[in-house]
Design a protein around this nucleic acid. Structure first.
Lengths: 371, 371
DNA sequence: CTGAAAGCGCTTACAG
DNA sequence: CTGAAAGCGCTTACAG
């Protein structure tokens, strides 16, 4: 390959064909795995290609095929272990079908998300998996539809798009189970630390619509449902709002704990909030779990190494990604559900993966008041 | 856009040009941001494009430009928080320059890595960032060179490729600092939990070559250096080997702790091994940190919520990715360092980011033996 | 400022 | 099995 050292362009099929003494059509057939070529010619072409260090140009190929063998994954934060795991699930799954992943990170910024959609469309990926940061704004998702691009919603539902495949966690149900667990141990004053804190009235008003809520809201709904089933009123003071930032969450939680001694249990609705809540409890000076119980969300590795070990709702993040990828691959093979031309296409599927309550030692029966 | 409902292909520039009553050249100029077009024509073309729901085809554009505005990132495990953070750094950085990221996960499998290189080359990305799983096998990296593709090594050095930009952590130096910290507290029987355990003789033989070692080996070298500086012999029994799997690491560490009561300190060389070691210490029944000290690697969130809080070496994973991306962007702009045609090209740069020892409460002076 | 023509690097009918 | 020609959807000289 030394002779290429000073050459500026990659060799193309034309050079390979010339080197092998065949037409570009034949060279293409020998190298591209399509059409018919005699073994002898094929061998000659392969040798020529190797000599020149030929690499097929995927752009040209895709331009003709109409397939890039790539999908886009749009998430709000790849650095978050939850999405990192989901992404791993996607990558592993699509790899088996020969697809690559084009990654977009939006930071829950609508403009970034719109831009991601525009770019993935221009890059002509074969499909997309999207965890939207703004379920209410769906114009950019409409453009996916207009472009007839198969896509799947991951983790965050989009109420306006019931015709799109989706893979979610059973957020409300699992949150309800978590809170019920606390109730069963006698807790009544149960605080919830949530990113959806400010939407309590909205959430409480449409408890039957949990599936259309984003995860944080759905988990808050689960809390409300459990409390109501126990005939307890919702005390807004117990619903603590915090963004997905550990320190802020810890402070918010600590503040409630300091202000209200009657709180005997905390339910944190996400992995970041969980670590913040755990920290707040440690800082509160209360005996944990004797004086206060906690259930966290997302079974991170650290939850078994802290003392007390944390009772959590374990959500299958890796599987979430893998399932989304599976649905997308099916959709790529069959065409979008909303294509009326074809009646044989699978209906949109809405997968809801169960999350599991893992009981450990951070939850204990409600403390007996000392007289 | 209703009229497109039953149409099977995306509209191309030809349709837009026809709709606007201009040539494709003019339409292209109006939409593509190149060449000169009169404001009036431009407006007419834009209107036509909007009416047809036109999306430029990036494949065709890239085929001509010779640029895809995409880079590849090849890592061993996106699910690992370290790589997830580094990836975030890369994405954030290249985004500012208008590049997207094509992600490859190799699981440290050489075939997967070779395949990644082949595919990224075929997809004609503009550059690549690679954390190789097998620094010894470099033929596939040669093919990047042959293809004149700019690339940067991330986290894992490749001894054979001194002419390639790289961004690493100062692994040996920071490991040395960590062990020196333990020594300064009087510890002598210091165990090290490492993925490179089996290479102790090899590592001990080339302590001056730390920069060419993969992280685990370099950290082990730092341990050896610190011990030797303290005039202590290396006891192979204290060098515990474990793969990057928490349970296996915990078991291996526990075994040593049970077998050898003389061990008073543990240095774990990675985030997975750290949690395993922490767990092993908890299970050992020793008083922590009174009877045994520990330094971990990688400042994960959990390290401040466990008791005792973990003293760690904090490595800047996000910045690692961002810096690698920065170098790559520069290289993409200037062409590869090994291109002899151009003398004005920047020399290969080998960035070594410092890692910092964060002292917390898992390290304490060596226990006084009780008589 | 605008257009006709060539070309990026492949694959695909269509003949032979 | 093989090749000449057309074409995927753009951009780029080159004229006008």
């Amino acid at each position: 390959m030394r002779e290429r050292e000073h050459q500026t362009r990659e060799p193309s099929l034309i050079e390979v064909a010339a080197e092998a003494g065949v037409s570009t059509a034949t060279a293409g057939r020998a190298l591209g795995g399509y059409g018919q070529v005699s073994p002898a010619t094929a061998e000659r072409v392969r040798a020529a290609a190797a000599r020149l260090g030929y690499r097929p140009n995927g752009l040209a190929r895709s331009l003709i095929n109409g397939s890039t063998q790539a999908i886009a994954v749009v998430v709000t934060d790849v650095g978050n272990p939850f999405f990192a795991q989901a992404l791993r699930g996607v990558v592993d799954k699509v790899r088996t079908a020969g697809y690559e992943v084009l990654l977009f990170n939006t930071d829950s910024n609508l403009d970034a998300e719109r831009n991601a959609v525009r770019v993935l469309l221009e890059k002509r990926v074969d499909g997309a998996i999207i965890a939207t940061g703004s379920p209410a704004d769906t114009e950019h998702l409409d453009s996916l539809r207009d472009a007839r691009l198969p896509f799947v919603l991951l983790d965050r539902p989009v109420p306006d798009r019931p015709d799109v495949d989706s893979v979610m966690i059973a957020n409300a149900a699992s949150a309800r189970t978590a809170v019920r667990h606390l109730l069963s141990q006698g807790h009544r004053r149960i605080a919830v630390l949530t990113e959806a804190g400010r939407e309590l009235p909205y959430v409480a008003d449409r408890l039957s619509d949990c599936r259309t809520m984003r995860p944080s809201a759905a988990r808050l709904a689960g809390y409300v449902l459990a409390m109501r089933s126990a005939r307890l009123d919702i005390d807004p003071a117990l619903v603590v709002h915090a963004p997905y930032q550990r320190e802020i969450a810890a402070r918010a939680m600590k503040k409630l704990l300091d202000a209200d001694p009657s709180v005997t249990a905390v339910f944190a609705t996400d992995n970041v909030l969980s670590i913040g809540a755990y920290q707040a409890i440690q800082a509160s000076g209360r005996r944990f779990p004797d004086e206060i119980s906690m259930v966290g969300f997302d079974d991170q590795e650290w939850t078994t190494v802290v003392r007390p070990q944390l009772t959590v709702v374990r959500q299958p993040s890796y599987e979430l990604g893998a399932r989304a990828a599976g649905l997308l691959l099916r959709r790529i093979a069959n065409g979008p559900a909303w294509d009326r031309d074809a009646d044989d296409r699978p209906d949109p599927e809405h997968v809801e993966l169960p999350a599991q309550l893992i009981r450990r030692s951070s939850t204990a029966p409600v403390p007996v008041p000392s007289f």
